[in-house]
């Protein structure tokens, strides 16, 4: 069990659904949403939020810089 818990926040309206973040995630957290944003792109979202370790790989590789990453130590 990972001792840290991460979370990402995707700027939905700026996401272009390029999927580059999906293979870059080591714990396969990210998927594209069924819904679309205002521009008609399927945006990235956390499909398995409990698996996120906050490694920020997705944010580093995101061409549009739409991902913000948070991480904290697990308390329990």
């Amino acid at each position: 069990m990972a001792r840290v818990q991460g979370a990402i926040v995707v700027d939905i309206e700026r996401c272009k659904g390029c999927e580059v973040c999906i293979p870059s995630c080591p714990t396969s957290v990210i998927e594209l949403a069924r819904e679309v944003n205002g521009k008609g792109y399927h945006y990235a979202y956390m499909a398995q939020p409990e698996a996120c370790t906050g490694c920020s790989n997705c944010a580093v590789v995101c061409p549009d810089g739409v991902i913000t990453v948070y991480r904290m130590k697990k308390t329990a």
């Binding site: 818990q5 991460g6 979370a7 926040v9 939020p49 906050g54 920020s56 944010a59 580093v60 810089g65 739409v66 991902i67 913000t68 990453v69 948070y70 991480r71 904290m72």
Partner: peptide, 14 residues
């Protein structure tokens, strides 16, 4: 998620 997404836990931002 609301516990994690706080300013003090920020790791990466544009």
């Amino acid at each position: 998620l609301t516990d994690i997404i706080k300013e003090e836990n920020l790791v990466y931002k544009k």
